[in-house]
């Protein structure tokens, strides 16, 4: 087991970072995104950006897109960047 963990050290580090990022977005959501009545906040956009950074890591490292074909990597990267941008813009426009 230890050997398996050692051999996938990068993935384990990323997992730990993702858990920390989850707790961080929780904190941001409580302390900024949720301020009543002020609509769009930096906190909300920050939460969305953190989210898509997490998504990118899950795709690249857990789904092994990182080692896959250039085509798949490009599609996935484009998905993350475009969707994140679109949601942030929508969020700011509609708030």
């Amino acid at each position: 087991m230890q050997q398996i963990v050692r051999n996938s050290r990068a993935s384990v580090v990323i997992w730990a970072a993702l858990v920390v990022a989850t707790l961080a977005s929780w904190w941001l959501g409580i302390h900024e995104g949720g301020a009543p009545g002020d609509g769009a906040t930096v906190g909300g956009v920050a939460v969305l950006v953190i989210t898509f950074v997490k998504v990118w890591f899950v795709g690249r490292h857990f789904m092994d897109i990182r080692e896959s074909t250039l085509l798949l990597r490009t599609i996935f990267d484009a998905y993350v960047v475009l969707l994140c941008t679109a949601l942030c813009v929508l969020y700011l426009v509609t708030s």
């Binding site: 989850t22 977005s25 929780w26 941001l28 959501g29 995104g33 949720g34 909300g44 939460v47 969305l48 953190i50 989210t51 898509f52 997490k54 998504v55 899950v58 795709g59 857990f62 789904m63 092994d64 969020y91």
Partner: peptide, 25 residues
């Protein structure tokens, strides 16, 4: 095995976005 693992990560990936949308922003 790889297909199953990929799908399981997809379940994780989708929740990673659903969670902040509903619970945070």
């Amino acid at each position: 095995l790889e297909s199953g693992a990929t799908f399981w990560h997809l379940v994780d990936l989708l929740w990673l976005v659903l969670f902040p949308l509903f619970y945070l922003v």
